[in-house]
Amino acid sequence: MRTFRTMLKNEMKLSIRDMNMIIFAICIPLAVLIILGIIYGNKPAYEGAEYTFLEQSFGALTTISICAGGVMGLPLVISDYRNRKILKHFKVTPVSPAMILAVQVVIYTIYSVVSLILLYVVSVIFFGFHLNGSIPVFLGGYLLVMLSIFSIGMMIGGIAPNSQTASVIASLLYFPMLIFSGATLPYEVMPNALQKIADILPLTQGIKLLKAAALGLPLDNVFVPIAVMAVLAAVCIGVSIRFFKWE
């Protein structure tokens, strides 16, 4: 536990000094929220809808920081440590790969949770937001999205041969997910064909789950996305630890 606490404290300091995650995981989601809030205000999501546009988008906005941390931050920091031979040095100490990965996962969890809280507070205070659904269901969905996205990041970070590869894979996953899953561009305003493509992204499934939870809509077809994301997480985490590359 002492190892974990010390590593977490130091890695968190380094991450904050780096500023990237402050921008991508904390500031960007807030900026998108404020822009959407100013443009759409308290307008209903569509003609005759019982909830506002912002209420509909809230779930999606909360996943921006999960993506930034899980798909960009996590794999890049680990592959950078591999490049710099920091992992090689860890290999000749008693520390385990699971510990190294866990420290980073907790760091990006902290960013995500801070972002979630900030988004919630700002939307409630400035844009009259109200979470219609059940808070436990929303948080459960949020945790599941975090688990599946972070596990993808762990896998890329754990086994990518070098920073360049990790960075390419991360970008290939990050930008389409960010743009097409409804995290920034609302799913509802996309043309039908684009929606179909977006549907195959794991994040899109997660956002649907969060949206239903936030709006208190019936959760009929959620079993499939839950199962898919849980299996994905288990496989990715298993692979990242079993095939962890120190060098």
């Binding site: 380094l14 440590y81 031979k85 920091i86 090689k88 040095h89």
Partner: peptide, 12 residues
């Protein structure tokens, strides 16, 4: 162990 190459984080 002290390796030949330096290994530390950028701003540590």
């Amino acid at each position: 162990v002290q390796f030949q190459e330096a290994n530390y984080q950028d701003k540590v």
